[in-house]
């Protein structure tokens, strides 16, 4: 029970926490505050309860694969919104005057979707077992360990992201965001395969090397979408999203840099004229 609780809580918390850490670190670089965070988490948790309570209705849509389709849809949405949010941060790092309303909206939106997804499973799991008193100790101990591990990794991840100088920090943020987005598309494909919307298959099996239910496996799952035995479709989608997201974000970095260089050069030129 303890082990199970750790795995379920860790897996769900870790996915959301890594995105939050990435956002918080990016917000710091682009000069945004973290006031959006608590309301977004609160709404996300409420949405997760709502999602969980509507799950039976959702599950019966699309001939019984509604859960997979819904999940895949939210994952695809996240894997698009996540690079977009990061792009917004990159632009704003160089142009601090730019209004941040849309950026806040994006971060809040991604946070709510991510927490609603992850929170729903935690809610279902906890509400299934809290009524049985003989399981309570191991349930709570396991949940505490799982949540504690998740938040600890998230906090260190946040500080790690913040420890780089700006130009490297932004590149690392771009890479991490792309990896997370690609991992999400991998999961989305898994759901679509499960719903028989995409063909199944197996390219390799590395479960002997890193088991998916180990702590390391959970961490890699949340960070780079690790899967021990992926299908060809999953790998293809993974690399398509990874590369296009990287290209998109690095073009954003490059654009904002050239723009910043122009901004720096311009007043100099004017000064020369004046002189």
């Amino acid at each position: 029970m303890l082990s199970t609780s750790v795995i379920i809580l860790l897996r769900e918390v870790l996915e959301a926490v890594l995105i939050l850490s990435l956002f918080m670190a990016s917000a710091q670089r682009s000069g945004l505050n973290n006031r959006w965070l608590l309301p977004a988490i609160g709404i996300g948790l409420l949405a997760s309860i709502g999602y969980a309570s509507q799950l039976s209705t959702i599950a019966n849509l699309f001939d019984g694969v509604g859960q997979e389709i819904f999940d895949a849809f939210s994952l695809i949405l996240l894997s698009v919104l996540l690079p977009l949010t990061m792009y917004g941060h990159f632009i704003r790092v160089k142009e601090n005057s730019r209004p941040a309303g849309k950026l806040y909206a994006l971060m809040i939106g991604v946070t709510i979707i991510a927490i609603a997804r992850e929170g729903a499973e935690i809610y279902l799991y906890l509400s299934a077992f809290i009524p049985s008193p003989e399981l309570r100790n191991s349930l709570f101990a396991g949940s505490a360990i799982g949540v504690g591990l998740g938040f600890s990794v998230g906090a260190l991840f946040y500080f790690w992201l913040g420890s780089f100088k700006e130009q490297y920090g932004l590149r690392i943020n771009a890479i991490i965001a792309s990896l997370i987005a690609a991992g999400m598309i991998l999961q989305a494909c898994k759901m679509l395969i499960q719903a028989d919307w995409l063909p199944d298959g197996q390219v390799w099996d590395s479960s002997g090397l890193i088991a998916e239910d180990s702590v390391l496996g959970q961490l890699m799952y949340a960070l780079i979408g690790y899967e021990a035995s992926p299908a060809p479709v999953q790998i293809a989608a993974y690399f398509i999203v990874l590369l296009s997201s990287l290209a998109f974000l690095f073009s954003g970095l490059y654009q904002s840099r050239t723009k910043a260089e122009k901004d720096v050069n311009h007043p100099q030129a004017r000064n020369n004229h004046a002189a």
Partner: peptide, 26 residues
């Protein structure tokens, strides 16, 4: 920063150790 990072490292270590301890004891 000091409190959060120290606590994070501390609980990471403690939790992984107790998890490992739990699994091998089981």
């Amino acid at each position: 920063f000091l409190i959060i990072s120290i606590l994070a490292v501390f609980s990471l270590g403690t939790f992984l150790a107790s998890l490992q301890g739990y699994r091998s004891s089981m």
